[in-house]
Design a protein around this nucleic acid. Structure first.
Length: 576
DNA sequence: GCCGTTTTCGGCCCGACTGTTTTCAGTCG
C-alpha cells in the first residue's frame, strides 16, 4: 500500500507551490488530492493499474498523470522541476510549528537555511530578527517551535489524549460551573492519534474561564491568551487549545471545531447552494443574514436537510451524501457488546487470575469473556503447553459452575509460526471454544510470505479469529508487509473473523481497513487483548475505531448473544 | 488544478491570533 507515499509527494508539491507563491486554489487542489489518496481504502497501485485514478475525488487529468508517472517510473519530473528552484530539504522546515512555506522560503532565500541545524545556528546568531516581517518575538517563537518538534515523537495516542481531556474538562466544570463543555477536533472524532487537544466551552464570562484554564496544574507554558481562544502546553508537552463561545452558538462552534476540515468544507458548500452560510456562530440565511440556528449542533445539519452525523464519521468519506438521503448507518455502541473475545490471564503473561478477569468482565456487564492465553512457542510471554491448557480448563470450568451470569470461554491466542503452521496441534485446538491466531515473530518477512502464513492459519478450521491482523504499533512500527485486499478475501472465504484490537497503540485493524473488510463481507471482532482487569476498559478505543469504520452492531461478532456466538464459532469447524 | 441539478469557464470555506505593521501577511485549524 503506497497511498501514504503518494500523498506525501503531492503534499510536498503543494508546499513547494506555496513557496513559489502559486495560485492558492492550485495549492489547495494538491492538498485535497493528497488527503483523498491517503484515506482511500484501496491500494493506489491497483487503482492506477485499473485506470481508475480519476475516480478518486480531487484527482483530475493533471494529478492522475503525475501519479501514473511516479508509479510507473519511480520519478516525478514536475517535482524535480520544482526542487531545482527550492531544495527539497527546505520543505521539511515547515514541520516546525510556526514555520509555514512562506517563512521557510524566506529563510532559504535570505540566509541559505536548508535544515533545522542551519536554522538553530542562525537563531543562535540572532540573524532571524533582522529579516523582513520577522522580529525578536518571531525568532523566539521559531526557536520554541524547534524545541517542540524535537520533543514530540509524532502524534499522541487517543488513549493518552482522551483521559487527559476528560481530566481537564472535569476541573473546568467544577471550578466554573459551566455546563456546555466538550472536546472538539480530532479527539471528538476519536482519531487514533491526536495532534493537539481542542476543548470548547460556552460561557458569557470568557475571562474567568481563561483564568481557570491557564492556571491549571498541568500547564507548563501559555502560548496564547485571548478572549475567545487560549493555548497552553502541558508538562508532557501536549498543546491544548480552549475556545469560549456564547451559549447560543455552542452547537455551531462545536460543529465547526469538530471538523474534519474536509467535512466542513463540503458542508459549507452545500449550505451556500441552499442559500445559507455556516460559521462558528451559527447558520444564517444568505438573503437577509438572519440567523436560523446554532445553539445545537443538530440544527446545522437539520437546516441543511440532513441527519445529524456522528463525529467519528465526519471525514468527508461519503457520510454527507448518506445524511442527505437520511440513510446513515446506525453505528455500533459500547453497550451493544456482550463480551470480550481476547483477554489474557496470569496463566501466560497477564497480571490477573482467571477469576479476577472474570469478575472484572462481569462488573462491566458482559455475558462472556474468552481467556486466550498465549501458546507454547511464545516463551517470552509464558506460552502454555497442551498439558497446561488442560489444567487451566479446570479453573475455567470451576468459575462457570458458579453460575454468576458470566460465561468464561476456553480459548488461546495461538502463535502462527514462520512457515504458516500453528504452534498447537489440531487435536488440542479442537477442544477449545475460541481460537485466536496471531503473528508474533518474523514480522519482517516479505509480503508473499506473510500472506502465506496468515492464509495457513485461516485455512485451519479451528482458527476463528486473526488477532491484530496488520501488526502495526502506532508511532513505533509500521504494519508488516501484507496485501490487505487479499487478506480480507481470504478471511471471507475461510469464514475467519478479523480483530479490531483495542490496545491504544495498536487499534489494528484501523478504521479504513475495518470498513473495507466489512464491505468485503468479513465479520469483525472488537477485543481488548487485556492483560489486566483495568485494560478491559480499552474497549472504548476499539469501539471508537469501529465507529470510524462505519461498523454497525450486526458487523461485530461479540455483539451476539452467547448462544448465537457459539453457534457462529462452531460453524467453521463443522464446515468440512 | 478540480469541478458542474444554475457553469466546460469561473468559481473555489472561514475566522482567530500574532507580530510587525500603520492596514496586513503568515500560520493554524
Amino acid at each position: 500500500m503506497r497511498n501514504r507515499e503518494v500523498a506525501q509527494l503531492l503534499e510536498n508539491i503543494a508546499t513547494l507551490l506555496e513557496m513559489k507563491g502559486e495560485n492558492r486554489f492550485k495549492i489547495v487542489a494538491y492538498e485535497e488530492a493528497a488527503r483523498r489518496i491517503e484515506s482511500w481504502p484501496e491500494p493506489i497501485e491497483e487503482v492506477w493499474k485499473e485506470g481508475r485514478l480519476k475516480e478518486i475525488p480531487g484527482v483530475g487529468e493533471s494529478i492522475a498523470s503525475k501519479i501514473e508517472e511516479y508509479l510507473s517510473t519511480g520519478k516525478l519530473s514536475y517535482l524535480e522541476e520544482l526542487t531545482k528552484e527550492i531544495p527539497p530539504e527546505v520543505v521539511h522546515l515547515t514541520a516546525i510549528p510556526g514555520v509555514g512555506p512562506k517563512i521557510a522560503k524566506l529563510l532559504y532565500d535570505q540566509l541559505g537555511i536548508k535544515s533545522i541545524e542551519d536554522l538553530e545556528k542562525a537563531i543562535a546568531e540572532q540573524k532571524l530578527r533582522h529579516l523582513p516581517r520577522l522580529g525578536v518575538k518571531s525568532e523566539e517563537k521559531i526557536r520554541k517551535g524547534i524545541e517542540m518538534l524535537k520533543r514530540q515523537s509524532g502524534r499522541m495516542l487517543l488513549g493518552q489524549a482522551l483521559p487527559l481531556v476528560e481530566e481537564i474538562i472535569e476541573v473546568i466544570q467544577e471550578k466554573s460551573g459551566v455546563t456546555k463543555i466538550s472536546p472538539a477536533g480530532s479527539i471528538r472524532r476519536m482519531k487514533e492519534t491526536i495532534g493537539d487537544i481542542d476543548i470548547l466551552v460556552a460561557s458569557s464570562t470568557p475571562e474567568s474561564i481563561m483564568d481557570i484554564f491557564t492556571s491549571l496544574p498541568q500547564v507548563r507554558e501559555i502560548i496564547a491568551r485571548g478572549t475567545t481562544k487560549s493555548s497552553i502546553v502541558t508538562q508532557e508537552g501536549i498543546q491544548v487549545d480552549l475556545r469560549v463561545v456564547e451559549e447560543t452558538s455552542f452547537g455551531a462552534a462545536l460543529q465547526y471545531f469538530t471538523g474534519s476540515k474536509a467535512h466542513n468544507i463540503k458542508l459549507r458548500e452545500i449550505a451556500l447552494k441552499k442559500g445559507f452560510k455556516v460559521n462558528e456562530y451559527g447558520i444564517f440565511r444568505l438573503d437577509n443574514d438572519k440567523r436560523v440556528g446554532g445553539e445545537k449542533e443538530e440544527e446545522i445539519y437539520e437546516t441543511l436537510g440532513m441527519e445529524w452525523i456522528p463525529p467519528e464519521m465526519r471525514e468527508d468519506q461519503g457520510e454527507i451524501e448518506l445524511a442527505q438521503e437520511k440513510k446513515l448507518p446506525v453505528l455500533i455502541e459500547i453497550g451493544d457488546l456482550q463480551g470480550d473475545l481476547h483477554a489474557h490471564s496470569n496463566w501466560s503473561d497477564g497480571v490477573a487470575s482467571i477469576e479476577e478477569m472474570a469478575e472484572a468482565a462481569l462488573s462491566r456487564g458482559y455475558k462472556y469473556l474468552a481467556i486466550c492465553d498465549h501458546t507454547q512457542s511464545l516463551a517470552v510471554a509464558s506460552g502454555l503447553s497442551p498439558e497446561e491448557i488442560r489444567e487451566r480448563r479446570k479453573e475455567i470450568e470451576r468459575w462457570n459452575k458458579k453460575g454468576k451470569g458470566l460465561r468464561l470461554l476456553d480459548g488461546v491466542e495461538v502463535n502462527i509460526m514462520s512457515d504458516g503452521s500453528l504452534d498447537f496441534p489440531d487435536s488440542e485446538l479442537e477442544k477449545l471454544e475460541v481460537v485466536v491466531a496471531g503473528l508474533h515473530s518474523g514480522l519482517g518477512q516479505g509480503e508473499e510470505k506473510i500472506l502465506r502464513r496468515l492464509e495457513g492459519a485461516m485455512k485451519n478450521k479451528y482458527v476463528q479469529v486473526i488477532s491484530h491482523p496488520t501488526g502495526r504499533i502506532l508511532n513505533r512500527r509500521d504494519a508488516y508487509q501484507v496485501n490487505r485486499e487479499k487478506l480480507f478475501y481470504l478471511a471471507r472465504e475461510t469464514r475467519t473473523s478479523l480483530e479490531i484490537n483495542s490496545q491504544p497503540e495498536r487499534l489494528d485493524l484501523s478504521d479504513v481497513d475495518a470498513r473495507r473488510a466489512r464491505d468485503l463481507g468479513v465479520k469483525l471482532v472488537i477485543s481488548t487483548d487485556a492483560h489486566s482487569p483495568s485494560s478491559l476498559d480499552y474497549i472504548r478505543y476499539g469501539v471508537a475505531q469501529a465507529r470510524r469504520g462505519w461498523l454497525r452492531k450486526e458487523d461485530v461478532l461479540n455483539t451476539f448473544s452467547l448462544e448465537k456466538l457459539l453457534e457462529f464459532l462452531n460453524c467453521k469447524k463443522k464446515a468440512k
